[in-house]
């Protein structure tokens, strides 16, 4: 699915979080959204997902303003797994709460895809490490075969080795399933590794965009300072 955003504005109370955002998310490509914490990245993807409304501008999904959000899926920053449910019930949540019981094979196959051992099938989220929770959350996001997957800081809170594993996993899953991916991150290494195109947001507007493989060659001063950590 191709998504086109034009002059999007969104405010909370009287503060504009998104001042003027225009970007294109290409079908079956991986788009990376970069920016400092609190710059509105999460608000942007939640607005695209229709979890939030917006004040002005437009979002077109394959050229239409209406979309069936069942085609979308999201991996939340800290997994957002349901504590009271088992891992299998979390992954097959929609089937589980509708009293369908024949989800075991699909869940096990997804667990295998995201590198989870089947021994955790009946365990609870509180018994898992951060990296494993992210994998469960990814399996849950993939359970409904989405056309677009939104990944909210998938490597946050993970050590470099596990971050790399999650990046490899995302790359593998997105390529294999031909899914459009939109990833929020401030991890440049992840952006270069998993992305096709990037957008850099600062102060509610897009400051820079381009090919992820050329991130380090950017000429934008603000983005440069973001990458190097030096003061602009």
């Amino acid at each position: 699915m191709k998504i086109e955003i034009k002059n999007l504005k969104k405010k909370f109370n009287e503060n504009f979080v998104l001042k003027d955002i225009s970007l294109k998310i290409e079908k079956n490509k991986s788009t990376i959204i970069l920016g400092e914490s609190g710059c509105g990245k999460s608000v942007l993807i939640k607005t695209i997902y229709k979890l939030f409304g917006f004040d002005s501008g437009s979002i077109l999904y394959d050229g239409k303003s209406e979309v069936d959000i069942d085609k979308f899926s999201m991996l939340f920053q800290y997994g957002a797994l349901f504590d009271s449910l088992k891992i299998s019930e979390n992954i097959a949540f929609t089937d589980f709460i509708n009293n369908k019981t024949n989800f075991e094979r699909k869940v096990l196959s997804l667990m295998n895809d995201v590198g989870l051992n089947k021994s955790i099938y009946d365990r609870y989220p509180s018994e898992l490490s951060g990296g494993m929770k992210k994998r469960v959350a990814l399996a849950r996001a993939l359970y409904k075969n989405p056309k677009v997957i939104f990944l909210d800081e998938p490597t946050t809170g993970l050590d470099p080795i596990n971050s790399d594993k999650i990046n490899d996993l995302i790359l593998k899953v997105v390529t294999k399933r031909k899914i459009t991916a939109v990833t929020i991150t401030h991890d440049i290494k992840s952006a270069i590794k998993t992305g096709d195109k990037y957008y850099f947001i600062d102060n509610g507007i897009i400051q820079d965009n381009g090919d992820c493989k050329k991130i380090l060659k950017t000429k934008n001063k603000i983005f440069k300072s973001f990458i190097t950590g030096a003061k602009y």
């Binding site: 939640k46 997902y49 979890l51 959000i69 069942d70 979308f72 899926s73 999201m74 939340f76 920053q77 800290y78 957002a80 797994l81 349901f82 949540f93 929609t94 709460i97 849950r140 409904k144």
Partner: peptide, 18 residues
């Protein structure tokens, strides 16, 4: 706080019902 309510919405589950 842990975004589970948002997760419910993304899983097409109405939180009033659930």
């Amino acid at each position: 706080v842990t975004e589970q309510i948002d997760a419910l919405k993304t899983l097409n589950t109405n939180y009033y019902n659930y």
